[in-house]
Design a protein around this nucleic acid. Structure first.
Lengths: 218, 218, 218, 218
DNA sequence: CATGAATGAGTATTCATTCAT
DNA sequence: AATGAATGAATACTCATTCAT
């Protein structure tokens, strides 16, 4: 039985090595320009071994994509701590937005999206899954904060699902879209501030709405 | 000299034929799955002729992408006519948004974006150009309307460049993003309405801002 | 010693298991389309064990082919019983022919022949052995009956080795040859009758020869 | 137009070169052990060119098989000349048999049959075609002579289709079967004589039947 | 100047065989 | 002694690009 465990651990090591190699190469070159031989070489295994672990290029690709979504659930304790302690509602929203930016601005994440987008025609299901998973993930994250603020009367009750998406859209326009086309996009505080203002202008209560104003309004 | 003109016209015809064929095939199959031989066959020229006109696949691809942006600037006469005639400001904004949606929802446009995104690593300059051109085009279109509305005091003075981008971001989140991942996305009037409300809430004057309200506000 | 015997019996079991598995797979798919891994899996042993028992694919193939010829010689008691009891000589010959057909029509037998023929260039000795073994087997079977009939004066004395081969040739033309090429071949009584007639016409005595006549002979 | 003819002639040369190379390699090694690269190399073309001419290995194989059956129709003038001139009926039959042997004993023919037999499971239609074509060809050839002899009362009227097949079966047993298994088989005059005798014993008229007799008959 | 035939360097995938445990 | 993971060499097939005519 010891042998089995040993072998399993070895296999896991190799598999991880392959996945890492594949991830790197796929992200760097895209799906079709990545060769199985290259991936194998970089993972220090033979192509045959590679195929023992992943029966096809597509399969390997999917596995790579999946590993990119196995992110450990990050503690959102800061949020709850803050809201109960009467923390600044603007600060909380801003934090949520910046967290979202942090995720979306990850170059690996962008590269992954590029690949999936490139393979929509070939692997529509994968693209659908990624879209659903990804958008859902981001929206839920934002929505949780927004719902919290609504619950504490810092935002007016409304369709928070939709408002989250609009918020996400503004963030993406600023951060993700340029990156997707290869541009470096840094989070500009002014832009983040304007996004925040636009959001509170629509969904804030009298208090929260009042704070950020247009430059020309006295 | 006549012979030269004749030859030049023939060459132009062939070039156009090649471009049309390449456009169709590229859009249908994506860059890497498109073969030069297929493009040549469909364009009814030899591969050698194809290579005379476009010295490489990448070059041809760039040319194809460029042709897609040589669309004639459509007359927006309706806008100016409307605004002078005291037309409904909400209606005008909505028209602008819907025009934007109409452009972005074009499947060919989406396919093109997919391809350019897929080739960012290979052709970063092209991707940059497309991003700049495309976003600029859409933003300018929206900005023109917004500026017009500002000029007529239907919106408050503000950084319309930025507000246009935020507006575009919300539109894209609803329309472009799903399509990019292969999902069908239809323009939902409610969503469009909410986008409009969010925009006017932030940038509208007292009059325009008041009209659409959250359901729970009396 | 007990341990050794035990081990030997285990080894024999495995060997048989491997042979059975290999036989099935070889016959079903042919030599080159059969994989050692598949054979091992079906025999429920590891590939290494398989290679311990049979050092190469070709070796295994030869062993398989050989097992197919280790069929126990079936008792032809019916024959001797019949001939002493003054049984119908035509009936006896017909029985022998039909027994031959029965053997040759076995799909497994045909598949085996196909494989051996396919591998003549690779394993000429094996092919030679099979040819010798197989033809000898069939010829001897027929010859025994023929000799018996000669002994009882139902056929004239002659080179029965040669006549057996001619008889076998006629049978094979009707049964084996089509099957070898994948056609279904059923034993047509008329054809069998004609073979019989042809045989007795040449080798029969006045009595036996007379019985089956050409349609146009009065 | 001259260019076209030139190119066509070149293409034909290459195609023939490929076919010759493929024929040789296929016949020497069998289908599955023959590599397209080897065939291309021997034909002095690139694999890509090979694939331009024959879109797949199977296709090439079929083409090779077909070329083996494009034998020029041999003049059978000897037959008709002979029969009208009152030639020896035994001699005519013997000639037909020997012609048949000549064809069947061709090593290339045997190798071809081996290959087709080996690929029955993969290409059943091809095997069927070859079987039908080949057997039909041989049978017809024999049948023509037999019919001729019947017409001239040298053989009794009978089902010549069937008798041809029986004759072919005897020939094949002596010549083809051993060769198929890799044995050299030479035409033994005694055996041919016996085949002839067996045939005339059954189908000959009183005259023709009488000539060759069993050694033990006075 | 246009052609289409030709190519070489690649592609993913398979398999008989061996080796560390 | 048995395992199953590992391998290297091979396989059929493709494609962007060039060259002789």
């Amino acid at each position: 039985m010891d042998l089995q465990t040993y072998r399993r651990s070895i296999a896991e090591l190799k598999q991880n090595s392959i996945l890492a190699s594949a991830r790197e190469i796929f992200l760097a070159r895209g799906y079709s320009r990545s060769g199985m031989a290259d991936i194998a070489r970089q993972a220090d295994v033979s192509t045959a071994t590679l195929y023992k672990h992943f029966p096809s290029k597509e399969n390997l690709f999917q596995a790579v994509v999946n590993t990119c979504y196995e992110t450990p659930p990050q503690a959102d304790s800061a949020l709850h701590a803050g809201i109960s302690g009467g923390a600044d509602p603007h600060g909380l929203l801003q934090q949520a937005i910046e967290a979202c930016i942090g995720h979306e601005a990850d170059p690996a994440h962008t590269a992954l999206q590029r690949m999936v987008i490139a393979e929509v025609q070939t692997a529509p299901q994968l693209a659908y899954d990624i879209y659903a998973n990804d958008s859902q993930y981001r929206v839920e994250h934002l929505k949780k904060t927004i719902d919290e603020l609504v619950a504490h009367n810092h935002l007016r009750p409304h369709d928070t699902e939709l408002s989250s998406r609009l918020l996400l859209g503004m963030i993406r326009e600023m951060m993700v879209w340029p990156q997707l086309f290869g541009l470096e996009a840094a989070a500009d505080p002014e832009e983040v501030g304007e996004i925040l203002s636009a959001f509170t202008a629509r969904y804030g209560t009298a208090t929260t709405r009042a704070i950020p104003s247009l430059p020309d309004e006295a």
